[in-house]
Design a protein around this nucleic acid. Structure first.
Lengths: 197, 197
DNA sequence: TTATATTTTGAATTTCGGTGTAAATACTAA
DNA sequence: TTAGTATTTACACCGAAATTCAAAATATAA
């Protein structure tokens, strides 16, 4: 990649990040390209040198967020940790993404229906793939008798829902740190999978 | 209330319901008054005979949904059921609302940030009140030693998040009925509150 | 330095949707 | 039946925001 291409890629990434921030703060529609441009000290016009449309920008936010989530999860799956540790760590990783890359992930989680159909399908496919990783962990746990038999799909929906809701209430100023939240959540959400003993 | 007033109120309610349906399907911005009117076989203009603005319409959706949730919960609290039953039933009631009045509640849950500040405050206040009901149940359970000590706020966030996420995946055609889902969720989400025995 | 390619600008264009309104129509009560 | 009120319509207005584009500015390479 040439120097110029590299710089262009970097700028585009900046635009995506700022767009994500504004999309998550004000919503897709209320964040105007004007806003995004002003934030970057660009003019509206120059944004179009880097992107083709506002819709594409939204899509890129989604895609970036999903890719980050998937990559992290695949790292975890590649370890030789015991399965319930993988699950717990997967949950923690997801929480950390949601809280750490708040704006990016918030856009991906909250503004799905703003995506036009073609884009939406791509994102939905990625999300399915991601969720399947979790479901498989639960299923394996059941097969091995570590977990009690539950409909794994539902269990994963509960887990995802609880986590994906975090941006709705999380504040830096809250009384619990990210790590404490991640710890509490992963315990609370995995606990009901175990058999009583 | 006179015959005419009554009919007007009924029509307004219809408008709200249809608006909710479209808002939840396409999002606040993409559902135009044109759409709403066409669905009701009205013209855009005549909608304005019943409402003052699109924004007000959104607010009414929120308010209606929140009031339904609060009323149902207050009914449950007024019973003499044991506290953990109240909690379980509260959860089930919430799920039934989310699934039964999908569009209305989906709007209320998903499109908070579309509300203008004044309206938003009213809705946030109602939601806080609602969530406090749940938190109090958890706290009482802890005090009485039925539940293990957990940060009740977090526990309720988990419960609410898991449920409020349902509209994202629920389909009539799914393999589990509303009731089965409600049953599974309330068990899964309350279970981690109990001490191990 | 100069010529060429890249980047940025700012204005112009276009489209769309919420809202206002005056006139038309339908309804109700007397 | 009719006067008066409630409801609906059609249309125009207006602003906002996405997108386009030609020209200007800037950077790069020869």
């Amino acid at each position: 990649m040439s120097f110029r291409e590299e710089r262009a890629a970097e700028r585009k990434m900046n635009i995506i990040k700022v767009a994500a921030k504004l999309f998550s703060e004000k919503g897709y529609h209320d964040a105007t390209l004007e806003d995004i441009a002003r934030n970057l000290k660009y003019t509206k016009g120059s944004i179009y040198y880097y992107i083709n449309s506002k819709q594409e920008l939204l899509f890129q936010c989604h895609e970036l967020a999903m890719d980050m989530l998937i990559n992290r999860m695949e790292e975890i799956l590649a370890t030789d940790w015991p399965l319930e540790v993988k699950l717990r760590e997967g949950i923690k990783a997801h929480i950390e993404m949601v809280v750490g890359e708040m704006s990016l992930v918030t856009v991906a989680l909250g503004q799905e229906f703003e995506l036009e159909e073609d884009y939406r399908q791509i994102i939905v496919a990625k999300r399915d793939r991601y969720e399947r990783y979790f479901r498989r962990l639960v299923d394996e746990g059941i097969e091995k008798g570590i977990f009690r038999p539950v409909p794994s799909k539902m269990a994963v929906f509960i887990i995802m829902g609880a986590i994906n809701w975090i941006p709705r209430w999380y504040s830096e100023k809250g009384s619990m740190s990210k790590e404490e939240i991640a710890e509490f959540f992963s315990d609370y959400l995995v606990r009901p999978l175990f058999k009583k003993d």
